[in-house]
Design a protein around this nucleic acid. Structure first.
Lengths: 188, 188
DNA sequence: ACACCAATGTCAGCCACTGTCATCATGTAG
DNA sequence: CTACATGATGACAGTGGCTGACATTGGTGT
Protein backbone atom coordinates (compact mmCIF):
# COMPACT_ATOMS: atom_id res chain seq x y z
CA UNK A 1 0.00 0.00 0.00
CA UNK A 2 2.91 2.35 -0.54
CA UNK A 3 6.45 2.13 -1.75
CA UNK A 4 7.95 4.15 1.05
CA UNK A 5 8.91 2.93 4.47
CA UNK A 6 5.65 2.03 6.18
CA UNK A 7 4.44 3.60 9.40
CA UNK A 8 5.01 7.20 8.43
CA UNK A 9 2.45 8.34 10.97
CA UNK A 10 3.96 6.34 13.78
CA UNK A 11 7.47 7.55 12.97
CA UNK A 12 6.37 11.16 13.07
CA UNK A 13 4.50 10.54 16.30
CA UNK A 14 7.58 9.10 17.95
CA UNK A 15 9.88 11.78 16.55
CA UNK A 16 7.57 14.50 17.85
CA UNK A 17 7.34 12.85 21.25
CA UNK A 18 11.12 12.63 21.52
CA UNK A 19 11.78 16.17 20.37
CA UNK A 20 9.09 17.70 22.57
CA UNK A 21 10.62 15.89 25.53
CA UNK A 22 14.22 16.72 24.60
CA UNK A 23 14.03 20.41 23.81
CA UNK A 24 10.44 21.40 24.49
CA UNK A 25 7.37 21.98 22.38
CA UNK A 26 8.04 25.55 21.28
CA UNK A 27 11.67 24.86 20.50
CA UNK A 28 10.69 22.11 18.11
CA UNK A 29 9.68 22.99 14.56
CA UNK A 30 7.54 20.78 12.39
CA UNK A 31 10.45 20.62 9.99
CA UNK A 32 12.54 19.10 12.80
CA UNK A 33 9.96 16.39 13.39
CA UNK A 34 9.62 15.58 9.71
CA UNK A 35 13.38 15.43 9.25
CA UNK A 36 13.87 12.99 12.14
CA UNK A 37 11.06 10.86 10.71
CA UNK A 38 12.63 10.98 7.24
CA UNK A 39 9.68 12.82 5.74
CA UNK A 40 8.61 16.27 4.71
CA UNK A 41 6.92 19.03 6.65
CA UNK A 42 4.01 18.86 4.23
CA UNK A 43 3.49 15.19 4.99
CA UNK A 44 3.24 15.93 8.69
CA UNK A 45 0.23 18.14 8.08
CA UNK A 46 -1.37 15.45 5.95
CA UNK A 47 -1.50 13.19 9.01
CA UNK A 48 -2.04 15.66 11.84
CA UNK A 49 -4.25 18.71 11.84
CA UNK A 50 -1.59 20.78 13.57
CA UNK A 51 1.60 20.63 15.58
CA UNK A 52 -0.30 19.85 18.79
CA UNK A 53 -2.55 17.11 17.54
CA UNK A 54 0.31 14.63 17.24
CA UNK A 55 0.29 14.34 21.04
CA UNK A 56 -3.42 13.52 21.17
CA UNK A 57 -3.62 10.91 18.46
CA UNK A 58 -5.62 7.96 19.70
CA UNK A 59 -7.50 9.74 22.43
CA UNK A 60 -10.80 8.72 20.88
CA UNK A 61 -10.45 5.32 22.50
CA UNK A 62 -11.08 6.87 25.90
CA UNK A 63 -14.25 8.48 24.60
CA UNK A 64 -15.38 5.13 23.24
CA UNK A 65 -14.66 3.38 26.53
CA UNK A 66 -16.66 5.93 28.50
CA UNK A 67 -19.65 6.02 26.17
CA UNK A 68 -19.96 2.26 25.69
CA UNK A 69 -19.58 1.59 29.41
CA UNK A 70 -22.30 4.10 30.19
CA UNK A 71 -24.63 2.82 27.50
CA UNK A 72 -24.08 -0.81 28.50
CA UNK A 73 -24.60 -0.16 32.21
CA UNK A 74 -27.59 -1.97 33.78
CA UNK A 75 -30.88 -0.27 33.00
CA UNK A 76 -31.64 0.18 36.68
CA UNK A 77 -28.30 1.81 37.47
CA UNK A 78 -28.49 5.41 38.62
CA UNK A 79 -26.65 8.07 36.57
CA UNK A 80 -24.02 8.24 39.28
CA UNK A 81 -23.54 4.48 39.12
CA UNK A 82 -23.24 4.60 35.34
CA UNK A 83 -20.44 7.17 35.35
CA UNK A 84 -18.77 5.37 38.25
CA UNK A 85 -18.65 2.26 36.09
CA UNK A 86 -17.06 4.24 33.27
CA UNK A 87 -14.46 5.76 35.57
CA UNK A 88 -13.64 2.35 37.00
CA UNK A 89 -13.36 0.84 33.53
CA UNK A 90 -10.70 3.42 32.65
CA UNK A 91 -8.53 2.38 35.57
CA UNK A 92 -6.58 -0.52 34.05
CA UNK A 93 -6.06 1.40 30.82
CA UNK A 94 -4.10 3.99 32.78
CA UNK A 95 -2.35 1.81 35.32
CA UNK A 96 -0.82 -0.19 32.47
CA UNK A 97 0.84 2.81 30.85
CA UNK A 98 1.73 4.94 33.77
CA UNK A 99 5.25 5.85 32.62
CA UNK A 100 4.11 7.03 29.21
CA UNK A 101 1.23 8.98 30.69
CA UNK A 102 3.53 10.78 33.11
CA UNK A 103 5.93 11.82 30.35
CA UNK A 104 3.11 12.89 28.07
CA UNK A 105 1.49 14.94 30.80
CA UNK A 106 4.74 16.64 31.73
CA UNK A 107 5.06 17.80 28.14
CA UNK A 108 1.46 19.01 27.99
CA UNK A 109 1.37 20.86 31.29
CA UNK A 110 4.55 22.72 30.36
CA UNK A 111 2.90 24.45 27.41
CA UNK A 112 -0.23 26.58 27.30
CA UNK A 113 -1.23 25.70 23.73
CA UNK A 114 -1.07 22.02 24.59
CA UNK A 115 -3.13 22.57 27.72
CA UNK A 116 -5.75 24.33 25.62
CA UNK A 117 -5.95 21.39 23.26
CA UNK A 118 -6.25 18.97 26.17
CA UNK A 119 -9.09 20.99 27.66
CA UNK A 120 -10.83 20.87 24.29
CA UNK A 121 -10.57 17.08 24.27
CA UNK A 122 -12.04 16.97 27.76
CA UNK A 123 -14.89 19.21 26.65
CA UNK A 124 -15.64 16.85 23.79
CA UNK A 125 -15.50 13.94 26.21
CA UNK A 126 -18.05 15.73 28.36
CA UNK A 127 -20.35 16.18 25.38
CA UNK A 128 -20.02 12.52 24.45
CA UNK A 129 -20.73 11.37 28.00
CA UNK A 130 -23.80 13.61 28.14
CA UNK A 131 -25.04 12.10 24.88
CA UNK A 132 -24.50 8.60 26.23
CA UNK A 133 -26.43 9.44 29.37
CA UNK A 134 -29.30 10.79 27.29
CA UNK A 135 -29.62 7.42 25.59
CA UNK A 136 -30.42 6.09 29.06
CA UNK A 137 -33.45 8.36 29.17
CA UNK A 138 -31.88 11.10 31.23
CA UNK A 139 -33.08 14.66 30.68
CA UNK A 140 -30.81 17.23 29.07
CA UNK A 141 -29.98 19.17 32.21
CA UNK A 142 -29.42 16.06 34.30
CA UNK A 143 -27.23 14.58 31.58
CA UNK A 144 -25.14 17.74 31.35
CA UNK A 145 -24.62 17.97 35.09
CA UNK A 146 -23.78 14.28 35.40
CA UNK A 147 -21.40 14.38 32.45
CA UNK A 148 -19.62 17.37 33.94
CA UNK A 149 -19.36 15.49 37.21
CA UNK A 150 -17.92 12.49 35.41
CA UNK A 151 -15.20 14.36 33.55
CA UNK A 152 -14.49 16.52 36.57
CA UNK A 153 -13.88 13.49 38.76
CA UNK A 154 -11.81 11.99 35.98
CA UNK A 155 -9.61 15.06 35.63
CA UNK A 156 -9.03 15.42 39.35
CA UNK A 157 -8.30 11.73 39.74
CA UNK A 158 -5.87 11.84 36.84
CA UNK A 159 -4.03 14.86 38.22
CA UNK A 160 -3.56 13.09 41.54
CA UNK A 161 -2.70 9.76 39.95
CA UNK A 162 0.10 11.46 37.99
CA UNK A 163 1.79 12.84 41.12
CA UNK A 164 4.80 10.80 42.22
CA UNK A 165 3.74 11.21 45.85
CA UNK A 166 0.53 9.25 45.30
CA UNK A 167 1.48 5.85 43.93
CA UNK A 168 -2.03 4.43 44.10
CA UNK A 169 -4.13 2.78 41.41
CA UNK A 170 -6.19 5.08 39.25
CA UNK A 171 -9.38 3.51 40.58
CA UNK A 172 -8.41 4.38 44.15
CA UNK A 173 -8.16 8.03 43.28
CA UNK A 174 -11.52 7.84 41.56
CA UNK A 175 -13.16 6.38 44.66
CA UNK A 176 -11.58 8.99 46.90
CA UNK A 177 -12.86 11.77 44.70
CA UNK A 178 -16.31 10.22 44.55
CA UNK A 179 -16.35 9.96 48.34
CA UNK A 180 -15.48 13.65 48.59
CA UNK A 181 -18.27 14.46 46.17
CA UNK A 182 -20.72 12.56 48.33
CA UNK A 183 -19.51 14.35 51.46
CA UNK A 184 -19.74 17.76 49.83
CA UNK A 185 -23.22 17.29 48.43
CA UNK A 186 -24.62 15.55 51.49
CA UNK A 187 -27.56 17.51 52.90
CA UNK A 188 -26.41 19.27 56.10
CA UNK B 1 -0.46 61.05 28.59
CA UNK B 2 0.25 60.55 24.94
CA UNK B 3 0.08 62.58 21.79
CA UNK B 4 -1.94 60.02 19.88
CA UNK B 5 -5.66 59.53 20.04
CA UNK B 6 -6.35 58.02 23.44
CA UNK B 7 -8.03 54.68 23.97
CA UNK B 8 -5.96 52.68 21.53
CA UNK B 9 -6.78 49.46 23.34
CA UNK B 10 -10.51 50.12 23.37
CA UNK B 11 -10.53 51.05 19.69
CA UNK B 12 -8.78 47.83 18.74
CA UNK B 13 -11.11 45.85 20.96
CA UNK B 14 -14.16 47.33 19.28
CA UNK B 15 -12.69 46.98 15.79
CA UNK B 16 -11.90 43.32 16.46
CA UNK B 17 -15.36 42.70 17.85
CA UNK B 18 -16.99 44.24 14.79
CA UNK B 19 -14.83 42.45 12.26
CA UNK B 20 -15.15 39.07 13.95
CA UNK B 21 -18.92 39.51 13.89
CA UNK B 22 -19.05 40.83 10.32
CA UNK B 23 -16.84 38.39 8.47
CA UNK B 24 -15.79 35.84 11.06
CA UNK B 25 -12.70 35.25 13.16
CA UNK B 26 -10.56 33.43 10.62
CA UNK B 27 -11.44 35.82 7.83
CA UNK B 28 -10.16 38.74 9.88
CA UNK B 29 -6.45 39.51 9.91
CA UNK B 30 -4.76 41.42 12.68
CA UNK B 31 -3.78 43.99 10.05
CA UNK B 32 -7.50 44.50 9.36
CA UNK B 33 -8.19 45.19 13.01
CA UNK B 34 -5.27 47.57 13.37
CA UNK B 35 -6.25 49.45 10.23
CA UNK B 36 -9.83 49.98 11.37
CA UNK B 37 -8.51 51.18 14.72
CA UNK B 38 -6.05 53.52 12.99
CA UNK B 39 -3.02 51.74 14.37
CA UNK B 40 -0.38 49.24 13.38
CA UNK B 41 -0.34 45.47 13.54
CA UNK B 42 2.63 45.67 15.89
CA UNK B 43 0.70 47.83 18.33
CA UNK B 44 -2.07 45.25 18.50
CA UNK B 45 0.36 42.69 19.82
CA UNK B 46 1.65 45.17 22.38
CA UNK B 47 -1.81 45.22 23.97
CA UNK B 48 -3.03 41.68 23.39
CA UNK B 49 -1.05 38.49 23.68
CA UNK B 50 -2.61 37.12 20.51
CA UNK B 51 -5.48 37.48 18.09
CA UNK B 52 -7.84 35.62 20.42
CA UNK B 53 -7.11 37.42 23.63
CA UNK B 54 -8.83 40.61 22.49
CA UNK B 55 -12.17 38.84 23.03
CA UNK B 56 -11.33 37.87 26.60
CA UNK B 57 -10.01 41.16 27.86
CA UNK B 58 -11.56 41.95 31.21
CA UNK B 59 -12.51 38.42 32.16
CA UNK B 60 -10.44 38.68 35.33
CA UNK B 61 -13.31 40.55 36.95
CA UNK B 62 -15.34 37.35 37.02
CA UNK B 63 -12.50 35.55 38.74
CA UNK B 64 -12.29 38.32 41.32
CA UNK B 65 -16.03 38.22 41.94
CA UNK B 66 -15.98 34.47 42.52
CA UNK B 67 -12.93 34.40 44.76
CA UNK B 68 -13.93 37.37 46.93
CA UNK B 69 -17.47 36.10 47.35
CA UNK B 70 -16.19 32.70 48.42
CA UNK B 71 -13.61 34.14 50.80
CA UNK B 72 -16.11 36.57 52.30
CA UNK B 73 -18.80 33.92 52.80
CA UNK B 74 -19.81 33.27 56.44
CA UNK B 75 -17.33 31.08 58.25
CA UNK B 76 -20.00 28.52 59.05
CA UNK B 77 -21.17 28.22 55.44
CA UNK B 78 -20.65 24.83 53.82
CA UNK B 79 -18.49 24.64 50.68
CA UNK B 80 -21.63 24.15 48.64
CA UNK B 81 -23.16 27.25 50.17
CA UNK B 82 -20.02 29.25 49.47
CA UNK B 83 -19.97 28.45 45.77
CA UNK B 84 -23.74 28.95 45.58
CA UNK B 85 -23.19 32.47 46.89
CA UNK B 86 -20.56 33.08 44.22
CA UNK B 87 -22.82 31.78 41.45
CA UNK B 88 -25.68 33.94 42.69
CA UNK B 89 -23.44 36.99 42.88
CA UNK B 90 -22.57 36.57 39.21
CA UNK B 91 -26.24 36.70 38.19
CA UNK B 92 -26.78 40.46 37.89
CA UNK B 93 -23.46 40.91 36.12
CA UNK B 94 -24.76 38.72 33.31
CA UNK B 95 -28.40 39.74 33.23
CA UNK B 96 -27.34 43.35 32.69
CA UNK B 97 -25.33 42.63 29.55
CA UNK B 98 -27.26 39.84 27.97
CA UNK B 99 -27.12 41.17 24.40
CA UNK B 100 -23.37 41.62 24.43
CA UNK B 101 -22.84 38.23 25.99
CA UNK B 102 -24.96 36.53 23.34
CA UNK B 103 -23.03 38.14 20.49
CA UNK B 104 -19.69 37.38 22.10
CA UNK B 105 -20.61 33.77 22.67
CA UNK B 106 -21.86 33.32 19.12
CA UNK B 107 -18.45 34.45 17.90
CA UNK B 108 -16.61 32.17 20.28
CA UNK B 109 -18.62 29.01 19.72
CA UNK B 110 -18.19 29.39 15.96
CA UNK B 111 -14.42 28.94 16.17
CA UNK B 112 -12.40 26.14 17.69
CA UNK B 113 -9.38 28.25 18.66
CA UNK B 114 -11.63 30.65 20.52
CA UNK B 115 -13.35 27.78 22.28
CA UNK B 116 -9.98 26.49 23.38
CA UNK B 117 -9.07 29.85 24.86
CA UNK B 118 -12.39 30.03 26.65
CA UNK B 119 -11.87 26.60 28.15
CA UNK B 120 -8.46 27.74 29.36
CA UNK B 121 -10.06 30.71 31.09
CA UNK B 122 -12.55 28.39 32.76
CA UNK B 123 -9.72 26.13 33.90
CA UNK B 124 -7.97 29.10 35.48
CA UNK B 125 -11.24 30.08 37.12
CA UNK B 126 -11.45 26.59 38.57
CA UNK B 127 -7.96 26.89 39.98
CA UNK B 128 -8.75 30.27 41.51
CA UNK B 129 -11.96 28.99 43.07
CA UNK B 130 -10.12 26.02 44.52
CA UNK B 131 -7.52 28.34 46.02
CA UNK B 132 -10.26 30.50 47.53
CA UNK B 133 -11.91 27.44 49.05
CA UNK B 134 -8.61 26.36 50.54
CA UNK B 135 -8.40 29.66 52.43
CA UNK B 136 -11.60 28.52 54.13
CA UNK B 137 -9.73 25.55 55.54
CA UNK B 138 -10.92 23.04 52.98
CA UNK B 139 -8.61 20.17 52.07
CA UNK B 140 -7.02 19.97 48.65
CA UNK B 141 -9.18 17.21 47.27
CA UNK B 142 -12.39 18.69 48.64
CA UNK B 143 -11.44 22.10 47.27
CA UNK B 144 -10.72 20.68 43.82
CA UNK B 145 -13.97 18.77 43.65
CA UNK B 146 -16.01 21.72 44.90
CA UNK B 147 -14.30 24.13 42.52
CA UNK B 148 -14.98 21.81 39.62
CA UNK B 149 -18.60 21.63 40.70
CA UNK B 150 -18.78 25.41 40.86
CA UNK B 151 -17.39 26.06 37.39
CA UNK B 152 -19.34 23.15 35.96
CA UNK B 153 -22.62 24.54 37.27
CA UNK B 154 -21.59 27.95 36.01
CA UNK B 155 -20.82 26.69 32.51
CA UNK B 156 -24.03 24.72 32.20
CA UNK B 157 -26.10 27.59 33.54
CA UNK B 158 -24.43 29.99 31.14
CA UNK B 159 -25.05 27.74 28.15
CA UNK B 160 -28.73 27.52 29.01
CA UNK B 161 -29.01 31.20 29.84
CA UNK B 162 -27.65 32.07 26.39
CA UNK B 163 -30.34 30.09 24.56
CA UNK B 164 -33.13 32.26 23.19
CA UNK B 165 -35.69 29.63 24.23
CA UNK B 166 -34.88 30.10 27.92
CA UNK B 167 -35.42 33.76 28.76
CA UNK B 168 -34.90 33.33 32.49
CA UNK B 169 -32.56 35.13 34.84
CA UNK B 170 -29.09 33.68 35.18
CA UNK B 171 -29.75 32.90 38.84
CA UNK B 172 -32.75 30.77 37.93
CA UNK B 173 -30.63 28.57 35.70
CA UNK B 174 -28.08 28.26 38.49
CA UNK B 175 -30.70 27.08 40.94
CA UNK B 176 -32.14 24.59 38.48
CA UNK B 177 -28.68 23.13 37.89
CA UNK B 178 -27.98 22.99 41.62
CA UNK B 179 -31.29 21.20 42.16
CA UNK B 180 -30.32 18.64 39.54
CA UNK B 181 -26.99 18.17 41.23
CA UNK B 182 -28.74 17.49 44.53
CA UNK B 183 -31.06 14.99 42.87
CA UNK B 184 -28.24 13.18 41.13
CA UNK B 185 -26.04 12.86 44.18
CA UNK B 186 -28.84 12.05 46.60
CA UNK B 187 -28.19 8.69 48.24
CA UNK B 188 -30.60 6.15 46.72
C1' DA C 1 16.10 74.55 27.08
C1' DC C 2 17.28 70.00 28.00
C1' DA C 3 17.10 65.24 28.90
C1' DC C 4 13.88 61.74 29.52
C1' DC C 5 9.94 58.63 28.93
C1' DA C 6 6.21 56.01 27.18
C1' DA C 7 3.46 54.70 23.38
C1' DT C 8 3.69 53.99 18.63
C1' DG C 9 5.82 53.23 13.92
C1' DT C 10 9.00 50.67 10.82
C1' DC C 11 11.28 46.79 9.18
C1' DA C 12 13.07 42.27 8.95
C1' DG C 13 12.32 37.67 9.90
C1' DC C 14 10.64 32.88 11.82
C1' DC C 15 7.43 29.50 11.56
C1' DA C 16 2.75 27.25 11.44
C1' DC C 17 -0.20 26.02 8.01
C1' DT C 18 -2.34 25.68 3.04
C1' DG C 19 -3.01 25.14 -2.03
C1' DT C 20 -1.23 23.20 -6.08
C1' DC C 21 1.09 20.37 -9.00
C1' DA C 22 4.62 16.85 -9.97
C1' DT C 23 6.36 12.25 -8.86
C1' DC C 24 6.47 7.42 -8.17
C1' DA C 25 5.71 2.38 -6.53
C1' DT C 26 2.00 -0.67 -6.41
C1' DG C 27 -2.17 -3.06 -7.97
C1' DT C 28 -5.13 -4.06 -11.60
C1' DA C 29 -7.04 -4.21 -16.24
C1' DG C 30 -6.21 -5.35 -20.80
C1' DC D 1 3.90 -7.81 -20.34
C1' DT D 2 2.32 -3.23 -20.73
C1' DA D 3 -0.59 0.67 -19.54
C1' DC D 4 -3.18 3.01 -16.62
C1' DA D 5 -5.43 4.26 -12.23
C1' DT D 6 -4.41 5.07 -7.34
C1' DG D 7 -2.85 6.88 -3.22
C1' DA D 8 0.87 8.58 -0.58
C1' DT D 9 4.66 11.65 -0.81
C1' DG D 10 7.79 15.57 -2.54
C1' DA D 11 8.54 20.29 -4.08
C1' DC D 12 7.41 24.99 -3.98
C1' DA D 13 5.22 29.18 -3.34
C1' DG D 14 2.40 31.93 -0.46
C1' DT D 15 -0.45 33.79 3.63
C1' DG D 16 -0.70 35.29 8.15
C1' DG D 17 0.29 35.12 13.25
C1' DC D 18 3.77 36.66 16.08
C1' DT D 19 8.54 38.56 17.69
C1' DG D 20 12.82 41.30 18.11
C1' DA D 21 15.36 45.47 17.32
C1' DC D 22 15.56 50.11 16.51
C1' DA D 23 13.74 54.69 15.23
C1' DT D 24 10.29 58.36 16.05
C1' DT D 25 7.55 61.59 18.50
C1' DG D 26 5.17 64.53 21.65
C1' DG D 27 4.50 65.46 26.40
C1' DT D 28 6.84 65.66 31.31
C1' DG D 29 9.97 67.09 34.87
C1' DT D 30 14.01 69.70 36.13
Amino acid sequence: MGRWEPGALGRMQQAAFELYAERGFEQTTVADIAERAGLTERTFFRHFADKREVLFFGSESLVDLFTTTIIDAPADATPLQAITAALEAAGPLFDERRAGAVLRQSIISANTPLMERELMKMAKLTTAVAAALRTRGLGELAASVTADLCVGIFTISFQRWILPSNPQAFGDHVHQALAELAAITAAP
